[in-house]
Design a binder for these strands. Structure first.
Lengths: 147, 147
DNA sequence: TGACTCATGTCAGCATACTGACATAACCTC
DNA sequence: GAGGTTATGTCAGTATGCTGACATGAGTCA
């Protein structure tokens, strides 16, 4: 299979490599989260909430990079499972500030440690300086794409 | 909304930034591909096929970062639309070598140009050296994650 | 005040990708 | 050659995320 051919463009494309890295990271995260009954989307939502309590559905959607409709069904699930709470009615506007329950915090703890270990592994071949450089360059890409 | 709080970990996390960059890239690609009646997955498949004719379904799946089942339904669609062809039976083993049709090649051309422009925009704020560094560091992350 | 714009939460329908499962072909090892 | 392992294509069912649409609340501006 894979009549490997000549060194093709994809092998030199930063875009493709970016996708590959992101994909590998996600897969690695799923692997460590699955045994904990968690997945990347749920973890991301809980982590975001732990760090910024009171975020609205739309805020969370933007932070997790899904639509607010998708986040809405996720929040309904998390609410039903008792991991998060939302007030019955909005204190202001329509936005419902979401918060972790104690159960949600406990559930997040293990997951957070597992994910941290993955990120450490990902960075294991890089010096601190290189990590800073990577951060700066990725940030530059994001900004350029937004414009 | 977004009671922005203190500088949280997510803002410093390379993993989160990697996801953000990948997400922004995908969104930008979708934006330029949509007017052409194309999407990222279809484009990726066609581009891979153009650069490595004869790849099997499973090969393509790995290259596009989806399961071979997903790639299979995509290939069936592309086949029905006349963009790719697969032999009725495998020349060896079970793998069916896939190839672009002339129609598929033409369909890919515009898309390829559009995507190239996005990648150029993404790299616009970086020097050639910085691009090399970014490539090397991303590659390091991928390798570390695989181990 | 009234009209306009924008952001939000949510419902419904659809598209896409995944997991599970099965049969089959090639390879390896004894 | 027999048996085990791996890779492949494909079917089926499920899960997840998206687009479209609507009503509502807040801010803006004439």
């Amino acid at each position: 299979m894979s009549q490997d051919g000549n060194g093709v463009d994809l092998e030199k494309s930063l875009g493709y490599l970016l996708k590959e890295a992101s994909s590998a990271l996600r897969a690695a995260m799923e692997d460590v989260l699955r045994p904990l009954g968690m997945n990347v989307t749920r973890y991301s939502c809980l982590e975001l909430l732990a760090q910024r309590p009171g975020l609205s559905n739309s805020d969370l959607a933007r932070g997790v990079f899904v639509t607010r409709q998708s986040m809405n069904v996720l929040l309904q699930t998390l609410e039903r499972e008792g991991l998060v709470t939302r007030p019955a009615e909005a204190p202001v506007g329509k936005a419902l500030p979401t918060r972790l329950t104690p159960l949600g915090e406990r559930s997040l703890e293990q997951a957070s440690a597992a994910v941290r270990s993955v990120e450490i592994r990902m960075l294991s071949g890089m010096t601190e300086d290189e990590q800073s450089v990577a951060f700066r360059l990725l940030r530059s890409m994001v900004l350029s794409l937004r414009s």
